[in-house]
């Protein structure tokens, strides 16, 4: 650790610097965590306490009332299962399809490649809200309404994902691929054995983003699904609101329920951010 510092700096001042640095990080952390902690603590406060007008962080008389109500109000396991299926399948599909396309755009030569890519980029500039109605009608004619296929397929390829992965893959040295080709490796082999492992951090990033996007999606599942038993968690939770009044405790308990799985996914993806194979392979 101390080898990082130029010679001449004593061990002690290095330690002091390190502590100061961590205190700074900790302060920033508190700023970013505040709403999250508030959401968490509110879900344990009785309603009267929530509406007391002061936003205290620690519940005075903690209660599990809202979580109990949540189980009564929502068909929790069905909605949770729907959300898991939707987000997980979409994430897997999106990683596969986007990384294949990104590989083609980054490392395979074919006519008009740059133009095709520019065309894809242009589509990102059209706000998604305008295409909602046409996509809905296409799904209707395809008979995919009220099904998970209809929910998943339209979002499984994203120009964002292709762009993100392509930018990363372009930096993978051409020499590695050339060497593999000389060794008789097929394009599929190169993709599977070289490109994918080297792109692990960015694929993990895409997976996290896709998962979060799907997990929090509200309007699309609501419109596509015609049965309540097909609702995902955010849609089911939105039903807890009245037109004018809000049960804050219940709402926050629901929000906690929505956020926790996302954190788990993020922590899983974290592991792929370690320097390892990527750094080793770059040496050549």
């Amino acid at each position: 650790m101390t080898t990082n510092y130029p010679v001449g700096i004593t061990r002690r001042s290095a330690w002091l610097r390190m502590i100061g640095f961590h205190l700074f990080l900790l302060a920033s952390l508190i700023l970013t965590l505040f709403p999250f902690v508030w959401m968490f603590s509110t879900s344990f406060k009785p309603s009267g306490e929530i509406l007391s007008g002061t936003l205290s962080l620690i519940p005075i008389s903690p209660t599990l009332e809202h979580y109990r109500n949540l189980f009564g109000a929502v068909n929790l396991f069905v909605n949770l299962w729907n959300s898991i299926i939707f987000s997980l399948v979409l994430t897997i599909l999106s990683v596969i399809l986007n990384s294949m396309a990104a590989y083609a755009f980054a490392k395979i030569q074919f006519p008009r490649r740059e133009r095709l890519f520019a065309l894809l980029m242009m589509t990102m500039m059209v706000p998604g809200q305008v295409t909602m109605m046409p996509v809905f009608l296409i799904l209707k004619y395809a008979g995919l309404l009220n099904s998970f296929a209809g929910l998943i397929i339209p979002g499984s390829v994203s120009v964002f994902g292709i762009f993100l992965l392509r930018q990363f893959m372009m930096d993978i040295p051409e020499e590695i691929l050339e060497a593999a080709r000389i060794d008789g490796c097929s394009e599929i082999g190169i993709f599977w054995k070289i490109i994918l492992p080297l792109s692990r951090p960015v694929i993990a990033t895409l997976a996290v983003f896709t998962f979060i996007g799907a997990w929090n999606e509200f309007l699309w599942p609501l419109i596509i699904m015609l049965k309540e038993s097909n609702y995902t968690l955010p849609v089911a939770l939105a039903n807890l609101n009245g037109q004018y009044n809000t049960d804050w405790g219940l709402l926050m308990a629901g929000s906690v329920l929505v956020v926790v799985p996302v954190i788990l996914v993020f922590l899983t993806a974290q592991k792929h951010y370690m320097k390892g194979i990527a750094a080793g392979a770059g040496k050549e």
């Binding site: 970013t32 965590l33 709403p35 999250f36 508030w38 959401m39 979060i212 929090n216 709402l251 926050m252 929000s255 929505v258 956020v259 996302v262 954190i263 993020f266």
Partner: peptide, 9 residues
Amino acid sequence: IPVITTMVA
């Protein structure tokens, strides 16, 4: 965490 915290909260 701000990215994943619900917009409502």
